[in-house]
Simulated scan of single mutants.
Amino acid sequence: MVNAGNAFKGKRIGTDAYGGMAGWQAESGRIPVVADRTIVSYWCMANHESRPTFAKLHEDEIPEVWDCCRCGRPAGRLPGVEPLVDCVEPFKSHLQYVKERRSDEEAARVLEQALCNLRARRTNLGSGLAT
């Protein structure tokens, strides 16, 4: 018995038993050309290393600053050196943006309203089941 749901499990799309070529590639004997790549290391001030891959570029075309993939801070190409960033606004979390938009009193009001709505739905749901 064949399980069709797992037929492609572990296979890369576009490959088969012909040495990694499938379909028109195997029939024509043409092998796709892969562009040359450059891997560049960037370090943030927390010493996290990010290694994005670029197409083969001239040195002046590679960005000097990259966002850290772990903490989101700007990362430069030299470890331990803070990169120069055009934007002076530091990295902010979602919670920091929410706190900018609402005061503590307004947040308490919104929370209380949401809890009242939830309690009202639960009492309506409970009374609807009892009848």
Score class of each variant (00 low, 15 high):
V34D: 01
P74E: 01
W66A: 05
R30W: 06
C71R: 08
E64V: 07
I13G: 01
Q25F: 13
C71G: 05
D60W: 02
R37Q: 15
D60H: 04
C68P: 08
L78F: 12
C44I: 08
G76T: 13
W43E: 12
L78W: 06
R51I: 00
V65F: 04
E61A: 15
L57C: 09
W24S: 09
G23E: 10
V40R: 02
G29N: 02
C44T: 00
W24A: 11
P32L: 10
N47K: 07
P32F: 11
D67L: 03
M45F: 05
V34Q: 03
C68N: 00
C71A: 04
S41A: 11
D60N: 05
V65P: 00
P32S: 14
W66E: 11
A35V: 02
G23L: 09
Y42S: 04
W66R: 04
V34P: 00
P32Y: 11
E49C: 14
C68E: 05
I31S: 03
G72H: 06
N47M: 13
P74T: 01
G19N: 10
Q25H: 14
V34S: 03
E59R: 12
H48R: 07
D60R: 07
I39A: 00
R30C: 09
E27K: 04
A75P: 09
S28N: 00
H58Q: 14
A46L: 14
N47G: 01
T38Y: 08
R70L: 15
E27S: 07
W24T: 06
V33W: 07
C71Y: 09
W66Y: 13
G19W: 06
V34M: 05
R70E: 15
A22F: 08
G76Q: 15
E59I: 12
I13L: 12
A35N: 09
G23H: 11
T53I: 15
G23P: 09
A17F: 04
S28D: 08
R51P: 01
W43V: 12
P74C: 02
K56P: 09
G23I: 06
T15E: 12
L57N: 04
Y18V: 01
Q25S: 11
A35T: 09
G14D: 08
F54D: 07
C69K: 06
A75L: 12
S28Q: 01
E64P: 01
R30E: 13
E49F: 09
K56E: 10
R30Y: 05
H48E: 13
C44G: 06
I62V: 14
E59P: 04
I31C: 09
E49G: 02
D60T: 09
R77F: 10
I13S: 12
P74A: 03
E61Y: 11
I31G: 01
D67Y: 02
P52T: 04
G72V: 02
C71T: 02
R37N: 15
A22K: 12
E61V: 04
C69V: 15
A55M: 08
T53Q: 13
A22S: 14
Y18F: 15
